[in-house]
Design a binder for these strands. Structure first.
Lengths: 243, 243
DNA sequence: CGGTTAAAGAACTGTCAGTTCTCTAATAGA
DNA sequence: TCTATTAGAGAACTGACAGTTCTTTAACCG
């Protein structure tokens, strides 16, 4: 309505009003209707934690696409300007929020056999997808798909499930002689995680144990295990051991 | 500012203004400043095609996430209300726009051998991803990831690359004896397309022929071809045939 | 205590979703 | 041809939000 420049003039008008200390009743009435800036303020880490926590709560409720700076600020009971002093935009804020919560962290299984390692890993990831984090993950994966820059940011700054974890598992399998070393450089290495992600995105969570075993036994193990004279017999032996 | 109800009153005021036909100069000045509703109008299919074309152009320039009803309407030189008379929201408009352009259509290859069929299909898809459609595809895949309802809408109403096409190819391979019938029901069937999509989403377009051959020869064929006494010898034979 | 920094809140401009209203170009039917 | 109906085009509206600027004043430090 009025140009931005005239705000200063209005501020001076407020100053004039505040000079009416001779009548406390009038001053309180004016202040109550206009300005609420008095009160305890947070600074530094305490404030940032409150903001990141609010962001995570918004992520859980509305996903990445639905998250707004305005609502994060309101939830954290701070002002948008405070957010923009620290984070240039939504993406950076969300990345930091995910780091706080360790959204993507999993334990590296070490069961002594490749099959059970991979099944354990996929089960961990599936459980995470089925938790309150599932919606966050879906939104993050979608945004990574849409925006390669965001994907890079997440990969660089947030530890992600995938290549790193699966490679550790495969390295151990190589040491045990279950897998040949060239598999580590092959596209085959990450197929299990690729298919699990696919399943999650197409059919939602939870991904049942049966599906996980199918991915591992039907697709992944035939791809990565060292050649054997009779593959079907080997599979039957694995099934027997797991029962 | 004023309640919606008072619009009617303003309209009546306009009517009063238009009654000043006795002075054409005054009327032209008032009309030029107020209302531009005179002029030829499109109806039916011509109008819908203009809208869908505008939507496709916006999709190409800004992707799904950046597309707005307001800008589609402006680009099609129509009003938002006209859009909302036909489509409840963005998603439905975009789905119809993609149908118009046959965004996802590919020809089903029939080369006489599974390997060359699959390579041809993946090359077709890769070329499409590298075209102006690549950005549209990226945006659509992201939105399908984010919103399962949107994914269902796309799958039901737009012919999509993937399961259907690969199944036709596999059925022919079954008839030729290259593939056993149980593969059609297995998760293995769609692994090639899954990995191609992965490659596109992680590393962009184009997906090089070398990568496609890697996906097919290293991962897919070992998974789906009928067992043979010596797989390596068979692979060498295929390589020889393609040279 | 005084000066500086930055938090909290207000206010601003512009864009957009979704909606309602008005004027009037098309169309259909008598 | 005329009349009534439909719907297109544009205007205007409310509310939400991005990003920004300004003001007041709570913290903090020397």
């Amino acid at each position: 309505m009025l140009p931005q420049g005239t705000q200063r003039h209005l501020g001076k008008h407020s100053g004039v009003t505040l000079s009416l200390n001779v009548n406390p009743t009038v001053e309180s009435a004016v202040e109550s209707a206009v300005d609420h800036r008095k009160g305890p303020r947070r600074r530094g880490e305490e404030l940032e934690r409150a903001i990141l926590t609010a962001a995570l709560e918004e992520l859980t409720e509305v996903g990445y696409a639905g998250l707004t700076m305005e609502r994060v600020a309101a939830r954290a009971r701070t002002s948008k300007a405070v957010l923009y002093r620290r984070w240039p935009g939504r993406a950076e804020l969300v990345v930091d929020a995910c780091k706080l919560r360790a959204v993507s962290d999993v334990d590296v299984p070490d069961t002594g056999a490749l099959r059970t390692d991979v099944i354990s890993l996929l089960q961990q990831v599936s459980a995470k997808m089925a938790s309150a984090l599932g919606g966050i993950l879906r939104g993050l994966i979608a945004e990574m798909t849409r925006d390669p820059d965001f994907a890079r940011m997440i990969r660089e700054r947030v530890h992600t499930v995938g290549p790193a974890t699966i490679h550790i598992i495969l390295e151990r399998a190589v040491e045990r002689g279950e897998v040949e070393p060239w598999i580590l450089e092959s596209r085959r290495a990450t197929v299990a995680i690729d298919l699990l992600r696919n399943q999650f995105l197409l059919y939602g969570a939870p991904v049942e144990d049966e599906v996980i075993r199918d991915i591992v036994d039907d697709v992944y193990l035939p791809l990565v295990l060292s050649p054997a004279p009779n593959r079907q017999a080997e599979r039957a032996l694995c099934d027997g051991l797991s029962s």
